Simulated scan of single mutants.
Amino acid sequence: MSPIVFVHIPKTAGTSFRLGADSFFGKENVCRDYGEKAVETSTIVREWISSDKDGWLFARDFEKQGYQFLTGHFHAAKYISIFDASRMITFLRDPIQRIASEYNHFVRNNGYEGSFEDFFRSPQNVNRQLRLVGKNNWAEFGFIGFVDAYQDSLKLLNRKFEIDIPQLHENVAESEVVKPQQLTKDQIEELQILNAEELEFFSSARAQFDWRLRLACADESYVSGCVTHVEMGKLRGWAISEDINNAVLIQVKVDNEIIGECKANEFRPYCRARGLGRAGFIGFSFEFSREINVGSVECVVANTQQPLLNVYS
């Protein structure tokens, strides 16, 4: 089984989830990357990633040592070319509440003496969840859960990967993670402006999560996928169902009117390289018979009407 790679975003109940992973997989089978200087970072990470930068050797040794789970405060881009993108997971939290919680953590545990404004205006703290996941990577993730729906998220994740990570409460800080932070109107407005990209990403990811939950309750398969290009009279994208044996049938809509269908069974080298499933045979394309307004195009899964993401610009 391919390993699961958990992008642990700070202050998103990730420590509690990691403890659950330790319990299910066995602590010896969980690899950690919390930075080269962090004591919890696994030796294998220091040797192959921090020093030699040889991803192939790292993947080979990772498998040889029997690791089944990788976790840490790293950018997804660091490992998305080494492991299957469809095995990458994370949990998100309301962007403004998350950064307020992280500020309190830095003050309490790291001796941070700057103001809240100093903290959230710092470039490394702007759009942080989006930067860790990757603006161009997140649609490929196998699963994205949410702190405010942690129980449902864990159930859906376990169902998707056929595992049984328990919901643990040993982490004392978890109660703080979900505690609302009191902010002023001016602080909220500035945070919304600074983190506009992340707020849009959060909203899109949450809409997909809601569809995943809805389909699971109806015993229907969730479909990962997106429209990647709409130009020169042609549309292209990829889609894969959790029921991988069946290629996804896509309906193409313009101004909410169905104008045609196509099947997601075309070969895409990129999708195969990313390990998205079906050996890369998950692409779809559609040619328009008339000029259309690009902004009015939508692709949905034919049997459920689940909308696919639009990632073209």
Rank of each mutant, 00 (worst) to 15 (best):
R46G: 14
H73K: 06
G142C: 09
N293I: 04
L194N: 11
E102F: 09
E63Q: 15
E197G: 10
K160Q: 15
E197D: 12
V230Q: 12
Q187H: 10
N171C: 13
I4P: 11
G111A: 09
M1W: 12
P3D: 04
C299T: 03
E47W: 14
K64L: 06
G35V: 12
F281T: 06
V45G: 03
N265K: 09
M1V: 13
T12C: 07
N310D: 11
N109M: 02
Y312C: 13
E36K: 15
E261N: 07
F202N: 03
F161G: 11
Y222S: 00
R212C: 08
S285Q: 10
E242C: 06
V230T: 13
F146D: 14
V172Y: 10
G72W: 13
L213Y: 00
R108L: 00
T71V: 15
G295E: 11
A218S: 06
E266S: 08
R212N: 08
S51M: 13
N171P: 12
P166G: 14
C299A: 03
A273N: 15
E242T: 12
K78W: 00
D255A: 14
V107N: 01
S289Y: 07
Q65S: 11
Y79D: 01
N158E: 05
E28S: 14
C226F: 06
W138Y: 12
V294P: 10
L199T: 01
G233E: 11
M232S: 13
V45Q: 04
N127K: 07
Q208N: 11
K53G: 07
E117H: 09
A76N: 00
G280C: 13
V133E: 02
F62L: 13
S101D: 06
A38Y: 13
L199A: 00
L213N: 02
D243G: 01
Q187R: 06
Y150A: 02
I282Y: 09
S289W: 06
R108W: 00
F286K: 00
F58V: 07
E200Y: 00
G277I: 06
S50I: 09
F143E: 01
